[in-house]
Amino acid sequence: MKLRIFVTLKPGVLDPQGRAIHKALGGLGFAGVNDVRAGKLIELDVADDVSDAQIDAMCRKLLANTVIENYRVERA
């Protein structure tokens, strides 16, 4: 089973990387970009009998730092 885990900074947490990308887009002449937030995509290939609870535990214990990040699991 293939999973895609999207890890994003929580709303309100300053994202200096997103801000730098935003600035660089402006520097390239792209107008109309209101905001940029950078995150991570982690792809997992797991056995079919791995439970949702185990996947959630993987996210909470390692893949995301829930102090500053949210995560979303997408099944491919």
Binding site: V13, L14, P16, Q17, N65, V67, I68
Partner: peptide
């Protein structure tokens, strides 16, 4: 220590990058 939960909070990329 923050990642291990022995101290609260997190250390993020420097604001000035």
């Amino acid at each position: 220590l923050t990642e291990a939960g022995l101290l609260p909070g997190a250390l993020m990329r420097n604001a000035g990058l």
